[in-house]
Write a protein that binds this DNA or RNA. Structure first.
Lengths: 192, 192, 192, 192
DNA sequence: CATGAATGAGTATTCATTCAT
DNA sequence: TATGAATGAATACTCATTCAT
């Protein structure tokens, strides 16, 4: 019965994804220690035991979520953007608009940013979208539109500020948000 | 011979302050749920029971620290600064230098900033140093040296970035730090 | 396959009742402060944590037991008895025999009496079987077989003595017990 | 300096007696496990440490109080009474009047009775006043005024009832009290 | 001697994890 | 697989006892 087996795998996949999706938000809001499996399972809408069918432990689930947090936050769009034949300023403005839009509309994006940045703070992990941003910054400094300074630190400042507003949206619905221009200004020189 | 009332009060005051002082760092680093009383008391250098002489519960201790986090971070210097007969640009640069110096040298400052900012996220508390910063920003916008925009949001951005680096220093000794000029630039227009 | 709702409710009901039943004896013997949850759970034959699934705290469990202590002690037999078309003397003798029999054979009865009487001392609660006894006493005084005096006080004396022997059986197996005649005599006049 | 030494001993004796006196009531009301040294010392009006100057441990203090509880309750009056050349009925009536008076006026008497009786329940100790009462009962049975039955059990019933009202006065100020006649009746035959 | 702050062993309570259904 | 009651190790909290003053 290959069909039934297939269906089974699908269901497994669905449940697993449901757990991950719902957990991202929960962990992002409450942290690892602040998240109880009993509360989390209620929030997901499944029994406590079910979580342990898909993940070995609370830590295992957290690791999983942590390790894909950058994938949750960026999803390839930025890489594509960085490769387009555009001036850096344009790229930065597009990136900022993309980020702000996502912060406003997609809680998973905010949660991904929050978790990923926390990880950075704790163990200096590295992310694709940091690298991408550095590339754009370097291009911009050559073109003269981006402020001078260490590209890594500029990238960190940029995404640090994004993190700030990500956390804000996780705690407060309709949080007062920075706009795309002000976010871009972190990197771009003021026009003369 | 009974101990003198006065001496007893002193001892109590001292122990209470010791607990608060040492707990600030611990809670700032590990959060409420991530802090175990057994570890905390070891870190303070007292018995577990002693904490409960001064605070009703772990939550009570956290609340206390949380609620005085702005006092831990600021110490009146900023208020004095804002009242000096100086151009806003000078004030902003001095403030940034002051902040960076403290982030580097005083873990309590970082911890206070971290806890206070978390408090802002959770219950929209208000802080003296936000108000003070807004005043300076307003002055700067009149004088033409500060970027245009909502003063509250600019103040939040400024202290948000300070928070980022505060958290960084709490997790990593000798964290790569923003410099005072770059911090000031969040508010100041680039020179033409 | 999820357990059926119905079966779950049953299991919960059973465990809750088991805890109550076993705790009655324990609390009656050792009092609130003298009862350790660790010992109690061992005595019940469950894990410590299980108690906290069903009761918020040790106090909560005690309150529950305390507040149903009259239900544990009485089981409607007395009410039935009081309504039979019998002379009061007969009723009193039957009541005493019933009580003595229960004291001897049913530890739960003794525990219920002990807890309930303590409750009376602490907060002047009222019990069905006090009222019932008062009714019988009143009948007996009319019929001339019961000693004169305030019915409430006579009822209290009667059940107070029952309490004495209840406590005795809780502490000592095969305690020297009062007999039914002597218990009845507390209310009945000596035959001329 | 013999005088000063003498005075010292006096002070010691006074403090020790104060602790015992105040503790009797406290332990009688709350039991051993239910009595906290912190509360007890507050109730006595001394520091916690002071108790440990006079008693090795909480248990030691309790033992002391326990072991003198019968001395607290009876104070020789009953022994004297039993030896007077009086009819048993008279002795019983006098004893009851003495007991009731003390229950009403002297909390220490009630506390002593309560503690002593609890001890009896737990470890079958023996008391002077039980023996004395048994002697009077035996005399009364010979004289025909006391109900027939085992003297030990009658004595236990008598003092058990006294215990009931002792406990009552410990919990409730102005508790409804049995009167001396009704108390005597526990032993005396109704008059023909 | 008396004090009361400090201690830490002991007790209450929570929560990640297991397992019978 | 999914469930949720049960478990017990980990954690919070209490309280008899000690000790520097």
């Amino acid at each position: 019965m290959p069909k039934s087996q297939e269906r089974c795998r699908e269901i497994r996949e669905e449940t697993r994804n449901l757990i991950i999706k719902k957990s991202v938000l929960y962990f992002a809001r409450n942290g690892f220690a602040g998240t109880k499996i009993s509360d989390l399972s209620k929030h997901i809408g499944i029994a406590q035991g079910t979580i342990y069918i898909y993940f070995k432990s609370k830590e295992d689930l957290y690791e999983e979520i942590f390790s894909i947090s950058d994938k949750i936050a960026s999803n390839g769009k930025l890489t594509t953007l960085s490769k387009l034949p555009l001036p850096a300023e344009k790229k930065i403005r597009m990136m900022s608009e993309y980020v702000i839009k996502n912060l406003k509309e997609d809680e998973m994006f905010s949660a991904g940013i929050a978790l990923f940045t926390q990880r950075l703070l704790e163990d200096e992990a590295d992310a694709a979208f940091y690298k991408t941003t550095e590339k754009i910054i370097r291009q911009g400094q050559k073109e003269g539109c981006v402020v001078s300074g260490n590209v890594r630190k500029l990238s960190e400042l940029y995404w640090g500020v994004v993190y700030l507003y990500a956390v804000k949206t996780l705690y407060t619905a309709d949080a007062a948000m920075i706009n795309a221009d002000d976010l871009s200004r972190l990197l771009l020189e003021d026009r003369k």
